[in-house]
Design a binder for these strands. Structure first.
Lengths: 133, 133
DNA sequence: TAGATTATTAGAATCATTCTAAACTAAAAA
DNA sequence: TTTTTAGTTTAGAATGATTCTAATAATCTA
């Protein structure tokens, strides 16, 4: 049984052709930032029959199972990330690409006071990049 | 001439009823975080005739003129902010409200290396809040 | 293999935002 | 002032990302 099927089995998800293809893609690289649009393009290229609805269903499911992390960049679109650590991103709008910023690459010497009655749920940091000159 | 009309004149925008109402709202408070939906609700309440398209047209125009700052929070919607300083936000999803974090409330002792050939365009920091307990 | 359960899919629905093009209004020119 | 012109507002259509629906198909369990 290949790794993708293993992973799916562990998460009690049936190893359909579509799911295996998605998970294969995800585990084939170290770090992946994907959007539904990018992923369907890639899979269609590989001659996998899959619909957009299935892409969304599965990316969301994998995020629910903790295999991917789901987040948004500006207002653009939904991104999924195989990097499950706490981390932040550069966003290169030129290439529509994300670059990880590991947690240890940023540190705060001063943090804002959390409003009364609230606690911090998550922090999103996105550093938008543009080309030099 | 009232302040709203002054501001519009300076920006070479005609002081229509709709524009004056929007700018009046904006300058009536110290710090305002608005979305199109919140603003139209407020103005309709005040019996101002205005369409959603006009709200968007004008908020975008005011952002272009530097009177408002436009940004996004997660994937939700487009927000406009009267605070023109560099700053960040808490987001209270419970109330769908933003709270400013002034730049001097955060400081970095370590910042990530910007990728080659790129420069920083802007930094978005959003601290998502949830209720304590 | 049958029956139960879970997946996939095309296409419709949704929601925030933008676009279109017609009707209107303010400012400038005559 | 009227006329002209340039800028505005608007209803409703269009857009684009995502989700929903409900019919069909694939997988699993016994």
């Amino acid at each position: 049984m290949n790794d993708a099927k293993e992973i799916l089995k562990k998460s009690k998800l049936r190893p359909t052709i579509q799911r295996v293809a998605i998970v294969d893609y995800i585990i084939g690289k170290h770090k992946v930032h994907i959007t539904a649009a990018k992923l369907i393009k890639y899979l269609k290229n590989k001659k996998i029959n899959i619909s957009l609805a299935t892409i969304y269903n599965n990316l969301n499911e994998l995020a629910d199972k903790g295999i991917l992390k789901k987040f948004y960049v500006n207002n653009d679109k939904m991104w999924f990330d195989t990097n499950l650590q706490d981390h932040y991103h550069f966003y290169d709008s030129e290439k529509d690409e994300l670059i990880d910023i590991n947690k240890n690459e940023i540190s705060f010497s001063k943090s804002p006071k959390i409003p009364n009655g609230k606690i911090k749920e998550s922090i999103n940091i996105i550093i938008n990049l543009k080309n030099k000159n």
